[in-house]
Amino acid sequence: MSLKLSKIFEKENKLTEEIGDFDKALGKVLFLHAEPVMVFEDGEPNEETGEIKRYPTDKVDYYEVNVYSDAQDKQIVVKMPAEADFSGLEYEDEIKLTNRSINFWSDKELVPTGNGQFRTNYFSG
């Protein structure tokens, strides 16, 4: 998804309605599916390997919600808080996303290329 942003960028600049038109960028948004993501807790370490396995609890951490954006002509996954209520929503019901925020992230990975050399791959989103 692309949003038109302000030309003025300051440290910790918030993405707000003034610099991003979400309604125009997303168009009509249709609800498709909500999948709970559970809170995980560490189990006991394996006595032989020391490996610690993680197990899901019964507590919802957040929801991954699949929506369809007609302006983007694709499905988008949005993260919703555990308190979100999806009762009464049917497949392809039109919804409006409110209290929006965008998380920007970046990461890098060193990949061996041979002869003891490495290439750096950068990822962001």
Rank of each mutant, 00 (worst) to 15 (best):
L97M: 09
R100M: 05
D73W: 13
R54N: 05
V39D: 03
E44R: 11
T98P: 00
N121Q: 13
P36W: 01
F9G: 10
E17I: 08
I95Q: 02
N99H: 12
S6L: 10
L26S: 02
E90T: 13
K96Q: 11
T49I: 03
R100D: 01
Q72C: 10
S6N: 07
F118K: 13
V65K: 02
T113A: 13
N99C: 00
Q72L: 14
S69V: 03
N13L: 14
Q117L: 11
D107W: 06
G50I: 09
S101I: 01
R100Y: 09
T49P: 04
P36L: 03
A71E: 10
S101Q: 06
D73Q: 15
V65S: 02
A25Y: 02
Y63S: 01
Y91C: 04
K14I: 12
W105P: 01
P112Y: 04
D42N: 15
T98Y: 03
K7V: 10
E41I: 14
V65I: 08
V111C: 03
A25P: 04
D85R: 06
Y68R: 04
E35A: 12
Q72A: 11
V60M: 04
I19W: 09
T57G: 01
Y122H: 15
D73M: 12
S101K: 08
P45N: 11
A25D: 05
I19L: 00
K96R: 15
L89F: 10
S69W: 02
Y55N: 03
I19F: 11
E10A: 13
T16P: 06
N103L: 07
K79L: 08
R100T: 02
L89G: 03
G27S: 05
I19G: 09
S101G: 07
T16W: 01
G43Y: 05
